[in-house]
Design a binder for these strands. Structure first.
Lengths: 153, 153
DNA sequence: ATAAAAAAAGAATTTTATTCTATATATTTT
DNA sequence: AAAATATATAGAATAAAATTCTTTTTTTAT
């Protein structure tokens, strides 16, 4: 599908605030609600807009410990890799999971309530996986930026 | 503020789909719209809900190259650290920025259109910063999980 | 230049958000 | 435990927005 400037502007607006009304968007774009409404539906249908989510302040919710875990596997056959990925992705503590280039195989973002929960996760879940080779953890002291790639034509 | 089970369920619903209507939530929670509406407003006021965003399919938008950059600084005085952070966070290509424990100082997530854009970013923006010590890049081959920490009481 | 297709406008309708008042539930105080 | 107070919910009314439909305008292709 071909997107034009209006579509891009709509995406940027929704990326900023997904609860913006069609009316507000229409005003900003100097259009009526109809075309804006139809374009949004189209972008949803095409899967360009994947979903709408609320960002929760995790500190206020008592989730204070976040870490990146760099993981290497013992073996690198497709079977082992797939199995390991499926397993780690099933853990609630793992909020993001990447397959990366370089000296490690996986990068996991783990978010838990406290150090005790972290230790419990490592001992009872992660270290149980037989494919696991090495794990190197770097804790997040602070996140200073959280944004989305600028969408351009 | 003290949150009860209803608040948590509302947060989880909004985290799943921020465009869900109060009516739908009310139905799922066996409540009327009034308490749901008021609770959402309260959660927004308190900053527990930080914002609502649309998740855009970046592959479809032509953003195909993502990488993690591990950065160490030459000097570690507060002044240098703060300055560096402010500078990198101002770059559009840097979508996430972390201060981390361990052998490196910063972890940046960089998202760009292609390798050319990546190289341009490194040459014209990152490497220009005088505080920069070392940079180690790991490219993201695939992201297999993207979720949010389970909110519990 | 004309015909066909796509996009937008405008109006009408349905649905939802929001406010207000009344009722019920829970909490605190005595 | 009962009364008083505060908190939460229900229900109804209103305002605003979403959604649909028809007409007009703009764009595109011939």
């Amino acid at each position: 599908m071909k997107l034009d400037t209006t579509d891009i502007r709509i995406l940027n607006l929704l990326q900023e605030n997904s609860r913006i009304t069609t009316k507000e968007m229409a005003k900003k774009l100097s259009l009526t609600t109809t075309p804006v409404f139809e374009r949004v539906k189209k972008l949803e249908r095409e899967g360009i807009i994947e979903k709408y989510v609320a960002i929760i302040n995790q500190k206020k919710m008592g989730i204070i410990l976040s870490a990146f875990l760099f993981i290497s596997l013992k073996e690198h056959t497709r079977r082992h890799i797939d199995k390991f990925q499926k397993d780690v992705d099933s853990f609630d503590e793992v909020t993001e999971s990447f397959h990366i280039t370089g000296e490690n195989d996986f990068l996991l973002k783990v978010e838990v309530k406290d150090m005790e929960a972290y230790q419990k996760f490592v001992f009872t879940k992660l270290s149980v996986l037989t494919q696991l080779g090495s794990v190197k953890t770097q804790f997040i002291l602070a996140q200073t930026k959280q944004s989305f790639p600028n969408i351009e034509l």
